[in-house]
């Protein structure tokens, strides 16, 4: 079971780091790279801090920097939540 969905992550991303226009993060962005979406490493750090606050899942900073797509973040969060 997933604790966090792509829509949750989408909301957090926009909240933490804004968006270019309403369509930029809409749709299936699971496999679109953060670079392409225009989110830098600071945006990602802010996002993972927010994920920890909302979902109680902490991802180590060095692991976060290796996550390059929303899908990878979701995977990491949900695995950590399941204790895998």
């Amino acid at each position: 079971m997933s604790v966090m969905t792509l829509d949750d992550l989408r909301r957090i991303l926009v909240e933490c780091a804004g968006e270019d226009d309403s369509t930029a993060v809409a749709g299936d962005i699971a496999d679109v790279s953060f670079e392409e979406l225009g989110y830098d490493s600071l945006a990602l750090m802010e996002t993972t801090a927010r994920i920890e606050q909302r979902f109680g899942v902490r991802l180590p900073d060095d692991e976060v920097l290796g996550l390059t797509t929303p899908g990878a973040v979701l995977d990491a969060v949900n695995k950590a939540a399941a204790g895998v």
Binding site: E15, A17, G18, E19, D20, D21, G38, L42, E46
Partner: peptide
């Protein structure tokens, strides 16, 4: 300003 710049 672009929306991206607002949170920062």
């Amino acid at each position: 300003l672009p929306n991206r710049l607002l949170p920062q």
